[in-house]
């Protein structure tokens, strides 16, 4: 990460503009590593100011993938803070990258976030129906199929 990803100008901008970046040697903070559920290094963790981990990755990620994962973490934190416009913008951005592995999961959470905002489960189902259409072979399609098959 230190040789390839962190020096990348887009990564520098993303972390400096949108996060509080902190680096800690795991062995010197074992309690923190446990709370963040870090089971391998490097641990790449997005957390809110409430210290709850929102999105955890391990291992090397190239810059483009890393930025997408950071956006996903930001979206989860924004949803948790009820900043739904920001959350939906980020989820939509990830879901639009159809080939990205995180895209169907982003669409899944977009549905949950829409439901949390409106309290109308039809809003969730609308997003989940897109998962079935765009990623029919994915685990996420199997996750949402029950809810879509038993619509009121």
């Amino acid at each position: 990460m230190g040789a390839v990803t962190y020096p990348h100008p887009d990564v520098v901008k993303e972390l400096n503009d949108n996060f509080v970046p902190v680096k800690i040697e795991s062995a010197k903070a074992p309690e923190l590593a446990r709370r963040m559920n870090a089971r391998w290094l490097p641990g790449l963790i997005v957390a809110g100011a409430d210290e709850r981990p929102a999105h955890t990755q391990i291992g090397f990620l190239p810059p483009e993938d890393f930025i997408l994962e950071l956006h996903f973490g930001r979206a989860i934190v924004a949803m948790s803070r009820k900043l739904y416009d920001e959350a939906h913008r980020l989820f939509a951005e990830i879901a639009a990258r159809v080939e990205a592995e995180r895209a169907p999961e982003a669409c899944y959470w977009w549905g949950i976030s829409a439901y949390r905002q409106s309290k109308n489960f039809a809003d969730c189902q609308e997003h989940w129906a897109r998962i079935v259409a765009r990623w029919p072979e994915s685990l996420w399609t199997r996750k949402v199929s029950y809810a879509l098959d038993h619509r009121a």
Binding site: G2, V20, V22, K23, I24, E25, L41, A49
Partner: peptide, 30 residues
């Protein structure tokens, strides 16, 4: 250059003040 912090408690405080999430890089000894 990334403006890394190295103290968790200070990072939490700054996250609360700035409304930005924390990115934590847990690493092995360098």
């Amino acid at each position: 250059m990334i403006e890394w912090m190295e103290n968790w408690d200070e990072a939490v405080k700054r996250a609360g003040e700035s409304s930005r999430p924390i990115f934590l890089f847990l690493h092995s000894p360098s």
